[in-house]
C-alpha cells in the first residue's frame, strides 16, 4: 500500500503572517527514505515548515513537491491521502475517547468501505475493522501503549498522550512522516526508547521521516540527515556531523541554549 519513500522538495518557500515572514525563500531537499532531523532555535520556523509541507498553512510563494508530484495546490486532507501525515507540536487528540479510538482514526488513509457499508456493518466493514485494529495493536505494542489501549486519553500522563499522537501518525504507514518534537516531555529513557522504535518502524516501513528535535544526542542517534533553520531561513543541511560541526549552526543553535533543552 505504501510506495517507496519519496523525496520531498520545497522550492523558494515563503510563508507570511501579516508582514512577518515565518519562512523566507526556503529551498530544502529531504532525501528519500531517510530519517531527517529538523533543527533550529525556538521560532526558527520548524513547525511552519512542517505546516507548509503538510498543507496546514497558506504558502505565499514557492512550491512543495513529493516525489514527482506537485502538492502545492492541494489542501491538507489531499496531502494526507497522498501519503504526507504529520503530528502536531501541541497534541491534538480526541480527549474523551480511548487510546485505541485515537489511533484508529489514523487508518483513514487505508481504503475504507463506503459510509453505507460501514453504517450497516457489511462484510467489507468488518474486514476493514479487523485490518485497522490489527494495525493499531501493532503500533501501540511497539510504542509500549498496548496496556493502555482502552483508557481515555485525558487520563494519561503527558508523555503517553504524545505517543498516542505518534501512533495515530504511524498506524497507516505513511510514506512521508512529519513529527513535531515527538520526544518532548519524555525522560531520557523514554527518548532512547522512542528513537529505537522510530528506527524500527522506519526499517519495517520505508518512509521519508522528518523529526523536529532539540536534543542533539537524540538527533545524532536517530537521524542520518539534518536540516537547520534559523529565523525562517535555511541555514545548513548534511549529515549530523557536518551540520553540528558547522560554525553558523553552532552560533545560531548552541549560542543560546548550550544546556539540556526541554
Amino acid at each position: 500500500m505504501t510506495t517507496a519513500a519519496p523525496a520531498v522538495r520545497t522550492e523558494g518557500l515563503t510563508v507570511r503572517y501579516g508582514a512577518f515572514r515565518a519562512l523566507r525563500d526556503v529551498t530544502v531537499n529531504l532525501p528519500p527514505g531517510e530519517i531527517i532531523g529538523l533543527i533550529g532555535p525556538n521560532g526558527a520556523g520548524k513547525t511552519t515548515l512542517l505546516n507548509a509541507i503538510s498543507g496546514f498553512t497558506p504558502i505565499a510563494e514557492g512550491s512543495v513537491h513529493v516525489g514527482d508530484r506537485d502538492l502545492t495546490a492541494l489542501g491538507a486532507r489531499r496531502r494526507a491521502l497522498a501519503g504526507v501525515v504529520r503530528g502536531f507540536q501541541t497534541v491534538r487528540l480526541l480527549e474523551r475517547e480511548s487510546v485505541l479510538t485515537n489511533v484508529l482514526i489514523g487508518t483513514e488513509r487505508l481504503p475504507q468501505p463506503s459510509a453505507l457499508a460501514q453504517f450497516f456493518g457489511l462484510p467489507s466493514q468488518r474486514r476493514a475493522h479487523r485490518r485497522d485494529t490489527a494495525a493499531a495493536a501493532e503500533v501501540l505494542d511497539l510504542l509500549g501503549l498496548a496496556g493502555q489501549s482502552h483508557r481515555r486519553v485525558d487520563e494519561l500522563p503527558f508523555a503517553s498522550r504524545r505517543l498516542v499522537e505518534v501512533a495515530r501518525v504511524l498506524v497507516s504507514s505513511p510514506s512521508v512522516i512529519l513529527l513535531d518534537e515527538p520526544a518532548a516531555g519524555l525522560d531520557q529513557e523514554g527518548r532512547q526508547e522512542l528513537a529505537s522504535v522510530l528506527t524500527r518502524i522506519h526499517r519495517n516501513h520505508p518512509s521519508t521521516m522528518v523529526v523536529v528535535e532539540h536534543d542533539v544526542d537524540l538527533v545524532k542517534t536517530l537521524c542520518s540527515y539534518v536540516i537547520a533553520l534559523d529565523s525562517g531561513a535555511f541555514l545548513r543541511d548534511g549529515t549530523p556531523a557536518e551540520v553540528f560541526g558547522d560554525r553558523q549552526v553552532q552560533l545560531a543553535y548552541f549560542g543560546r541554549a548550550a544546556g539540556a533543552d526541554a
Binding site: A76, L81, L94, E95, L104, I105, E108
Partner: peptide
C-alpha cells in the same frame, strides 16, 4: 456506528478538525 471508521470520523470532526484533516478525514 461507534465501532466504525465512519463513527470515528464524526468524533474527530467534533473534537479536532485539524487532526481529522491531518489523517485524511
Amino acid at each position: 456506528l461507534g465501532r466504525t471508521q465512519l463513527g470515528r470520523r464524526m468524533l474527530a470532526v467534533r473534537d479536532t478538525e485539524l487532526a481529522a484533516e491531518s489523517v485524511g478525514v
